[in-house]
Amino acid sequence: MKYAGLFVMPAGFFLVIAAIVLFQNPAQRAAFVLCGLAVEGLGLGVAVRGHILPRGDSRP
């Protein structure tokens, strides 16, 4: 889980690149860019969650 989120984040970036390359319409571009950012947010969330310390005795 630690690394999975970080692998997902570049996928969001490529979605953003695809948005500006594929679409001329500003609304479509904006929608795709927002989707890309959402994917990045998801990846960041997974990465952050993967790095949270477990509670209890297993803590250092």
């Binding site: 984040m9 969001g12 970036f13 953003v16 500006i20 500003p26 571009r29 950012l37």
Partner: peptide, 21 residues
């Protein structure tokens, strides 16, 4: 605004994983 969003997406989507790696 869209240009700024693209820049932010680049910072998060390219540079955070790159720095981590």
């Amino acid at each position: 605004f869209l240009a700024q969003l693209i820049g932010i997406a680049t910072l998060l989507g390219v540079f955070l994983p790159l720095i981590y790696l």
